[in-house]
Design a protein around this nucleic acid. Structure first.
Lengths: 208, 208
DNA sequence: ACCTAATTGGACTAGATAGTCCCATAAGGT
DNA sequence: ACCTTATGGGACTATCTAGTCCAATTAGGT
């Protein structure tokens, strides 16, 4: 938790925590689908069934709510990726990771893009704190991928002179760019193609 | 021009065309920096120095203006890319293209991202017509890159069995993902790294 | 039981924003 | 010259939205 549980260091009862969570999850869902700017506080209230005073009791305003949403979505994504990547040490494992992402995105025909990427492109130029939080999350994600690549190197599946960090950055970029193209085309194909190119490159470095 | 010069098939005098252009260019700049949703019509009026009736004379509303902005920005980007890529037929030429994009983005420390990509991620889930226009623009851009790769193949600089189209898609995805990561980190490095990975992959396919 | 603080409900306000309207002026064809 | 149409200025409206406020209720420690 990078954000305080309550915005003013107040104590938080079980009921209060539950309300806070309801607000954040509702806001997260709405902002993913409608976008941050297009999601109004009234939308959040209606979706979560809480009143305005509760929202302002837990958050200083919309910006603070957006930051809480970033923390929440970030935690969910990182958790998912940690489970998916934490013990991967082969190219085949990396391909399974790719398949899961592609299949998941195919369900929506590419719509909405990456939960983190959409937030990032909408918020980065507008809120410095939010941007930094997102930047840290991407760094963490990149670290998980770099870990996989290093394990690959340890097992001889990737040339030791390759830079795991740079390859991980390239892999995330391909993923994010793929998400965006898929969102625009309403078709997963470009996302799959982009990931395949990145993976093919990594694989090719085992035969260097 | 995919959009009619005037929204109702009216005739357009030189003065009218000039006003229309002033509106679109001002809106394009504002929406690039502030985002589409955060740019109000009053912002556009103030920046372009025209009155509200003129705006509604030329456009049916904000959505129509956004679509005109997409056409305008798209034309500019495609024109720039056509000049940069139209006659490139070597890896070195592709690297010069990379350098120009990276240097240009470095001037802003990554802020604002790609003119087309930012529009795409903000608008794709909200306006089907706009999304389709952007999708066509990305396809055109991808076609320019595929052309380069095919010329590379003709000159023996790329294995003929490689798919120029898929590599071009991967290249654009790396670029767009790189833009997004650079925007979030406020640092061009990830964009440069992503492009370098894509180019290294293409280069590696000449020695297959 | 009692007292303090957390929690909740919801009306209310100030300001922003997309869109409308009406009338004035300029242009260009005939 | 004249008449039609394009262009222009800007006040006005309806609505939406973030944020405020106050009073009522619940929880939890002692």
């Amino acid at each position: 938790m990078t954000t305080a549980d309550s915005h003013n260091g107040r104590r938080l009862t079980a009921r209060g925590a539950k309300t806070r969570t309801r607000i954040v999850t509702a806001a997260s869902d709405l902002m993913y689908v409608k976008g941050v700017r297009a999601t109004t506080l009234d939308d959040v209230l209606a979706a979560s069934g809480v009143s305005k005073s509760q929202l302002y009791h837990h958050f200083d305003g919309k910006d603070a709510l957006v930051r809480a949403v970033i923390d929440h979505v970030g935690e969910r994504v990182i958790e998912r990726e940690r489970e998916a990547l934490g013990h991967v040490s082969t190219i085949r494992g990396l391909r399974r990771w790719r398949d899961a992402l592609v299949q998941n995105n195919a369900l929506r025909h590419g719509a909405y893009g990456c939960a983190l990427g959409s937030l990032a492109s909408e918020v980065s130029d507008h809120d410095a704190l939010a941007r930094q939080a997102l930047s840290r999350l991407f760094t963490e994600w990149q670290g998980l991928l770099a870990g996989v690549l290093r394990r690959l190197q340890d097992g001889g599946g990737l040339a030791p002179e390759a830079s795991a960090d740079q390859l991980a950055t390239g892999l995330i970029a391909a993923l994010q760019g793929g998400y965006m193209l898929a969102q625009t085309a309403r078709d997963v194909t470009p996302m799959a193609t982009a990931l395949d190119m990145a993976l093919a490159h990594i694989e090719s470095l085992s035969k260097g």
